[in-house]
Amino acid sequence: MTDFGFTINKPRVIDYDNTDKRVLKYLLAHEPSFNSCIFCGSCTATCSAGNFTDFNIRKLKIFIRRGLTEEIASEAEKCMLCGKCFLVCPRGVNNRNIILKVREALTKIESHEL
């Protein structure tokens, strides 16, 4: 192989047809309030973890929608489970339970149960 001094960039595009929807399916079955989210960002605005780190729970929920498992895994571990996001949600989305269920789903994926 010739060395050209560069390698070919990988796309950043979300290729929806080819992403992994296992976490999403699990979540919709176990925390149906997820469906009501309008991605308004109230959760992120009040988020305890988000105030000190780059954790963004609104983004996490979109990653779940799009099936971006890698991104989901790295985001989901940042939550401190304080539950303020549930208190402020205008659509009654149980964000705290979403995190718990996502973590569950990820464990199951790792152990090939999903």
């Binding site: 950043r12 595009v13 979300i14 290729d15 929806y16 047809d17 991605f39 983004k59 990653f63 799009r66």
Partner: peptide, 12 residues
């Protein structure tokens, strides 16, 4: 663009 993640998105 999936504007809430700031990434392009394509879907068939």
């Amino acid at each position: 663009e999936d504007t809430l993640t700031s990434r392009p998105l394509k879907m068939t």
